[in-house]
Design a protein around this nucleic acid. Structure first.
Lengths: 400, 400
DNA sequence: TCATATATTGCAAGAGTTGAAAAAATAGAT
DNA sequence: ATCTATTTTTTCAACTCTTGCAATATATGA
């Protein structure tokens, strides 16, 4: 009860900036007296501070404005890729106060060495946080390009890493016996979805009875995604939700290494685009990133073949959007990674695929939105996980 | 707070049958004294009754068992099809006390006449409920084979009925100025999903942090479905979730009247199966139901062509299951309508489609479950909507 | 009959919200 | 300069609901 009301008030201050107790009472439906008590507790916990008064223009006692103290709560975000471990430290406002990117040479198939690297980086980041007077370290969130099952934070199968049923949280915590905050392991695309949602949609989210649903599809080294229901990541029964890259779209399509046929990743994944654009040789010689860079150059030079490749990929993406729409009724589908960068060339194909359905379904199709966070989406999203946890339960922040 | 605890206790009694206050305290985590007060209120509202005492075997004061009084709360379920309006009246236990099926001749394209028929049937059903001493009529739930958008209970587009942006609830309530209970309009397959979930899964649902997700796919006159998250219908942003029949599965597949290509309905819908089995002429002459009946006969006679048709449909259904799995990570996929009846012939094809993925994803694929409610699933589900509403908020039932 | 065990209820205390009244702080009027 | 009206914030008593403890109820077995 109290926790709920604390969260209610704190969220309002966080979302709408400095505001007075009267506004809070009006917005939350609480009584003035309750707001006094609740804000007093938030101030005691150091989450909120009074920031001068602002006359309303008319007469009467001026309002005393309250704002959050973002630097009171900090979080560590870690993104693990095949080559690097990237770390971000940020506060409640999403301000990044520390950032490093360390290459690692952890071997394929064995999670322990990589867990040790992750633990070391978390420890360093925790030391950075400790340097900030009065900052509370809320959480360390590790994002990986693999499904993560909920309760145990286990990675059931990380193909690229050669892992199998790995409890990454346990492995990391083994090295961090004295860390004062919980360690979370999450799926990278899921949290990227969260970050883009907050960057583009959260503020304007239509309110109503229905649980607003948003889907996210990103492609960079692979194709992944996430499903957000009312702004919360839908993990599914076993944390596998959002594996959008392996939604089958072509019954007679080519076989995918996931075991199915015609998966989305076979049409919009990096290998697929490079091959379709005639850049398979370049990819083999200089690597996929080089091939994608070349494709980008050709697109910007209006190369007709390159543009046609993207239009075709857009059509397939459109079919995926139809699948998402039919199953989840997402109000928005956000594109991330190079799908956002190249949105301009993808959107016509997507629109084409949606066009037919539009007439029948009375224009209720999801809007296609391009992500704006680029390569930072995952780390930002990992920070956001922590931020949401704090806003959901302000009592996790101790009295100052 | 009180509402929440009332619901907690009532749900436990409803789920686990007669039980004593001590058990309730242990199961809900509430203190004995609170349970006393809460059960007292439930008894006052007529929802719960003491039903003798039961010695525990040992010594000590015997437990006084409490059970729900199902007949205290009744609900009206209405299923609207192109030919008939079917009505069920049932109580909290799902016991059906009244059932009628009225043909209607409401014209295509105009919802008002059908709304009048629905209203008349609700009125009759309400009269039946009024005949039960002390019964509280909680809700009338109208299930239709069309998407329903949440807040306004509007049917945005019911192709088969020729409707367009119809606020069915308003139309029905116009004729029922004195009805004491709210009228809900819901999607038929969504509530059928709820009914099958409670029939097969709810009791054994694995508990855990992750939101347990279940998908439902049914085919009879059309192909529809529903998505349940933690036992609640996921309506999506605009109530369109669960339109599983029009998930595209074949990029180059045939055009569907929904405007897309290769929709699931084109492979497992009744016309598709009849045509594939060489029964198109029979369907044209005697109607689809006759063709499906003939297909059923041939299946039971082990006709190889018929069996092959079902295996093929199963493979497509398997692709749909993969799509559902990837997007939502359903722990179970329930089949309904003739997909349940013919499950025996569909399952091999489905298993084949899932087989390849299974190895990669560490056997986390959803279980395929056959529905057991047959043609009653929708009406039972509509009753269940009301039941869940009462269990969620027992204060809607007045003091006796 | 009495001691023991178990279930339920009664009661005072506590946490938290609520509504009304009081206090605080300012602008404009006199 | 003082007073009044106005608006914001706090104080206070009442109220709701939960909690922990003690008391009561009702059985069994010695």
């Amino acid at each position: 009860m109290r926790r709920h009301n604390l969260a209610l008030v704190l969220r309002h201050i966080a979302a709408y900036g400095p505001c007075a107790r009267t506004e809070l009472a009006a917005a939350t439906g609480l009584v003035h007296a309750s707001v006094t008590g609740i804000t007093a507790e938030l101030i005691e916990r150091g989450l909120v501070r009074e920031v001068g008064s602002a006359a309303t223009g008319g007469r009467g006692r001026p309002r005393r404005l309250l704002r959050v103290v973002p630097e009171r709560v900090m979080a560590i975000a870690v993104q693990v890729t095949l080559e690097r471990v990237e770390v971000m430290v940020g506060d409640l406002a999403g301000t990044v106060v520390h950032r490093v990117s360390e290459p690692h040479r952890a071997p394929y198939g064995s999670p322990r060495p990589l867990a040790a690297v992750i633990a070391r980086e978390i420890e360093r980041a925790a030391a950075v946080v400790a340097g900030y007077e009065g900052a509370h370290l809320a959480r360390a969130v590790v994002a990986m390009a693999a499904p993560v099952t909920g309760p145990g934070h286990t990675v059931p199968a990380a193909i690229d890493f050669g892992w199998h049923r790995t409890d990454l949280r346990a492995l990391v915590e083994e090295h961090l016996p004295s860390l004062a905050c919980p360690v979370d392991v999450v799926n990278d695309a899921n949290v990227a979805a969260l970050a883009e949602y907050h960057a583009r949609i959260a503020a304007t989210r239509p309110s109503g009875e229905a649980p607003y649903t948003v889907a996210y599809i990103k492609a960079d080294t692979g194709v992944g995604g996430g499903l957000l229901i009312d702004g919360r990541i839908h993990t599914g029964s076993r944390g596998m939700a959002g594996e959008i890259g392996h939604v089958p779209l072509a019954l007679d399509g080519p076989e995918c290494r996931c075991g199915a046929r015609g998966c989305l990743a076979l049409y919009v994944g990096p290998e697929a685009l490079a091959t379709a654009a005639g850049l398979a040789d370049l990819a083999a010689a200089d690597g996929l990133p080089a091939a994608l860079a070349e494709l980008d150059r050709r697109l910007r030079a209006d190369d007709p073949t390159a543009v046609a490749v993207l239009t075709g990929a857009g059509r397939t993406l459109g079919a995926a959007v139809l699948a998402i729409w039919g199953l989840t009724d997402a109000g928005e589908v956000i594109l991330g990674g190079y799908l956002a960068t190249w949105g301009r060339w993808l959107l016509p194909g997507i629109a084409e695929a949606l066009e037919g359905r539009r007439a029948v379904a009375d224009r209720l199709e999801p809007a296609i939105v391009l992500g704006v966070l680029g390569g930072d989406a995952t780390l930002q999203g990992a920070l956001r996980i922590s931020r949401e946890a704090t806003l959901d339960d302000p009592t996790t922040v101790p009295m100052a």
